[in-house]
Design a protein around this nucleic acid. Structure first.
Lengths: 197, 197
DNA sequence: CCTATTCGCATACGCCTCGTATGCCAATTG
DNA sequence: CAATTGGCATACGAGGCGTATGCGAATAGG
């Protein structure tokens, strides 16, 4: 092995991110002790500060990783739709479904915004929004969606509604029924975007 | 004065809530030192623990207070609308406008959910949602809004979209323009709720 | 091949914040 | 007027964070 050094560094970073992701996703950012989860990765806080500056920096790295995964999953799930509009709707519902997962909900929709502020201003963590915005723009050009509205604004509104819907479903006593209700209401709101014939 | 005791207690509680509200709303919940803001109210943490149990308990009290104020303001602002649908729309836009205020944004939409969890499960802090839900129900009975959708679910989705919209506006370089775009997109989504003739 | 230097990471220290246990004094009660 | 309640302050211990410091291994230069 010619450069075990670089590999070791990458491995250390990966181990820290994985351990932090697990801790943040389960007990939450505030409750996660840096001493504890670095130890669970066989490291100490020294490595953390060296690579990420502080706890917030590590959270950013975790968020960037999750965001990338979400964008991949959303694109994959929606790519089979027959029409572009359906593709867009699938994208939104997939987004809600992902937001149901405790780890994503906690890190991306709760602790993340609380610690790092407005998600719209996160660096390298808006792949999903970017994708939705693109589709909305294309739909406007095709005349499917009304023209006089800002695509990214709509994407953000949808994003906000999704996270609420997901929280509601996740905390519901009957998640199945709540999910149906939420998705139905969601699709109704989306209908408002379509051009009337 | 026959019972200065009860008055003093109420005053202490009020002072703690006011001091905490100011601290939470400016520097944020996590950064707010209990020693600091109790001292700024001329008290100590002893009083805080006695009345509210812990820091979270005090946050709950602050949230309950703000929620009550928001509900009042929303109802007042929207009560002049000529039609019930317009009333409902005004309610939503007023909600967005309130969410622009840094204190409300920070406490109600960021730190609150991060510390206390799903806002839908907060005790005594859903007056706004309740009001919107009522109006949606009435609109369904009048045939203005499509019937096969759950009012509270819709109200929650709107709530989520509002908070996103507000954050976007607040962090924008041109808040005026961003606000117009957000409100326009928002109204468009609401149109999806109306029954097609 | 040997030396010098870099740097990844651990260790050690002090500060701050929180939660609890304890104590005091004023207001109420009889 | 004595007894008691309870509102609030003080004191203490534990744990988490950030910084300064140190060590050892991998690299680069001769």
């Amino acid at each position: 092995m010619h450069r075990p050094r670089k590999e070791m560094i990458a491995e250390t970073r990966a181990k820290l991110i994985a351990a932090a992701r697990d801790a943040f996703g389960t007990i939450g950012y505030a409750e996660a002790s840096m001493d504890d989860f670095t130890a669970s990765a066989g490291l100490t806080r020294g490595a953390l500060y060296h690579h990420f500056g502080d706890k917030k920096g590590l959270l950013q790295a975790v968020i960037a990783e999750i965001d990338g995964e979400m964008a991949l999953r959303v694109n994959e799930a929606a790519s089979k739709a027959p029409t572009r509009w359906q593709h867009f709707v699938d994208e939104c519902t997939t987004y809600i479904e992902m937001a149901l997962e405790p780890e994503i909900q906690r890190i991306m929709f709760r602790d993340g915004p609380a610690v790092l502020g407005d998600p719209a201003q996160w660096p390298n963590a808006n792949a999903c929004i970017a994708s939705m915005t693109e589709h909305l723009t294309a739909l406007q050009e095709e005349g499917v969606v009304v023209a006089d509205v800002d695509p990214e604004t709509v994407a953000r509104l949808i994003n906000g509604a999704s996270s609420q819907a997901a929280q509601r479903i996740a905390n519901s006593k009957d998640p199945e029924a709540t999910s149906r209700k939420a998705i139905a209401a969601f699709k109704l709101l989306l209908e408002g975007l379509r051009r009337k014939p």
